[in-house]
Design a protein around this nucleic acid. Structure first.
Length: 479
RNA sequence: UCCUCUUUAGCUCAGUUGGUUAGAGCACCUGACUGUUAAUCAGGGUGUCCUAGGUUCAAGUCCUAGAAGAGGAGCCA
């Protein structure tokens, strides 16, 4: 008989029929004659209760079969005789597929710390929390593709290995097949990359943007959704060395179109989670409230589902950098010098504390900041008519900070070339990028959205290492 | 990379001014119980007190160095 997925079974109203379920034991209770097993197969956060009658199946049938053991059970699906669940399966055939030795199996039916679970990331899928996160992560991936597909975007696979080191998005991981014990050197006593695999120095990508621009300037609307690698020594709750980034790039879009696209997309994905991940979100919401019980009421976060609804239904605040500086200069913490970095003049880079103030205290909603000073932003961003600001946009989310960074791109060849020259970016290595401005250049815009940062927001988790299955961070490449 | 904190049983944590045999809850083991809901009840402690030095009659506790983890900052998505 074919197994029924537990998610489908729990939706069923058809009782008094034989079913087969397979899964892992989450908990077991019972007495001398009967045991109750909570079985989970990953399809849903909910377990199905198996009733094991020892008289019928043999009194030793569950010896040593504890939490974590895997089962195949055939039996009658009936309305539950006890409270607490709608239905249960009275086991008729009970097969243990694999024992989990209770002496060494590290998971218990109780709360484990997230730090401990990070150390056993290979097993943490088996917890309610990580099961929920994993299902939501899938739904979010799916919603991203659906959003863009519905709007006629093409998904572009940009290269993971790149030779350009001009992207300026941080430290890179080098990719090489050279013998590090015996590195070949040239006459100038430099590493001889001519003998390396690609014949030149190569790295893992820090962004697919430049290549996405190439595609956008022919295909119109494109997006990438791939792994991204940054070799920064970042030890924070919102940085990973390996993360997934979504980078749409759209020909003919100006900065306002770009903001509209990013806001629509974030709202779409959040709404998708609300519509499709109800059970998991409810679990995570309860978990979060439980965790914050010890906090003062003022420090507690908004209830998760309420927070997601709020973001999905309300417009983001759109503010220029200049206006943000004005707000910050006049703010209480700035006047009372409560900020570590007091805002004095136009041109200052915004610190996390300033972004948090704007989002969490002043506007109390997601904020899109635009028109930053040119000198604190990347070379490819379009210069405004004022000659001193660029059409950059950062989207700041409560509790997370920057979730999106993007801009209208500089479409004018000469302006772009002079900015590259000022930053010592070699023109000849970037000829392919500049060619798009040489041949039929058009205004275009795009942004990068940190997928795991969106996951933090949607799940309400606070450490980015808990929303990716196998986190990569400095000194952390286990599993 | 910088600042702060933490590291004691499988897990979560307590351990007083340095003092004799290191504690609790859960898990686990043994037993009881005719249907449990984190089942309950009775009994059982399973330990490199992160590592290496040092101070002291005596160190889980104090000092130095290191490691790992957490939170914050920077870099950013």
């Amino acid at each position: 008989m074919k197994r029924t997925i537990i998610r489908d079974l729990l939706k069923s109203e058809e009782f008094d029929r034989t079913v087969v379920v397979k899964g892992w034991i989450r908990n077991r209770r019972g007495s001398k004659n009967v045991a109750f097993v909570a079985l989970n197969d990953g399809s849903t956060i909910n377990n199905v209760q198996i009733v094991v009658d020892f008289e019928k199946l043999g009194e030793n049938i569950m010896d040593g079969v504890g939490v974590g053991s895997s089962l195949s059970v055939e039996g009658q699906l009936i309305e539950s005789q006890g409270g607490g669940q709608k239905m249960e399966i009275v086991a008729e055939k009970f097969e243990v597929l694999g024992i989990a030795d209770p002496k060494t199996y590290p998971l218990q039916p109780k709360k484990h710390s997230l730090e401990f679970l990070r150390e056993i990331a290979h097993l943490r899928f088996r917890t309610n929390t990580f099961g929920a996160i994993t299902r939501i992560r899938h739904a979010m991936i799916f919603s991203v593709h659906q959003f863009f597909n519905d709007r006629g975007f093409y998904n572009i696979h940009t290269p993971i290995i790149t030779s350009s080191d001009a992207e300026g998005a941080g430290e890179m991981f080098q990719v090489t097949t050279l013998d590090l014990q015996n590195t070949p050197m040239n006459e100038a006593n430099e590493v001889d990359y001519k003998s390396d695999f690609f014949g030149k120095k190569t790295n893992l990508t820090v962004s697919g943007q430049l290549e996405a621009e190439l595609a956008a300037l022919a295909m119109g609307q494109v997006y990438t959704f791939g792994p991204t690698f940054r070799a920064e020594n970042s030890n924070t709750t919102r940085h990973l060395s390996e993360f997934w980034m979504i980078e749409p790039e759209v020909a003919f879009n100006d900065i306002v179109d770009n903001m509209d696209l990013a806001e629509d997309m974030l709202k779409y994905c959040v709404q998708y989670a609300l519509d499709n991940c109800k059970d998991d979100l409810e679990f995570l919401s309860k978990r979060l409230q439980e965790e914050e019980k010890g906090k003062k009421e003022a420090d507690r976060s908004m209830e998760l589902i309420e927070k997601l609804n709020f973001v999905a239904q309300n417009d983001f605040e759109r503010v220029t950098y200049t206006e943000a500086i004005r707000i910050l200069k006049n703010s209480k913490p700035n006047k009372k010098k409560k900020f570590d970095y007091v805002i004095e003049d136009w041109g200052a880079d915004l610190q996390s504390e300033h972004e948090r103030y704007l989002v969490e205290k002043h506007f109390k909603k997601p904020v899109i900041l635009i028109d930053y000073p040119a000198n604190i932003k990347a070379f490819y961003m379009k210069l405004n008519e004022d000659g001193k600001t660029v059409r950059a946009m950062d989207i700041l989310f409560p509790g997370i900070g920057e979730i999106v960074g993007g801009s209208e791109r500089e479409a004018d060849l000469e302006t772009l070339k002079s900015k590259m020259a000022a930053l010592d970016i070699p023109e000849d290595e970037m000829y392919w990028y500049l060619d798009t401005r040489r041949f039929g250049s058009v205004p275009h815009s795009g942004f990068g959205l940190g997928f795991e940062r969106m996951m933090l927001f949607v799940t309400g988790m606070s450490n980015i290492r808990d929303v990716i299955p196998f986190p990569r961070a400095p000194k952390q490449a286990e599993f």
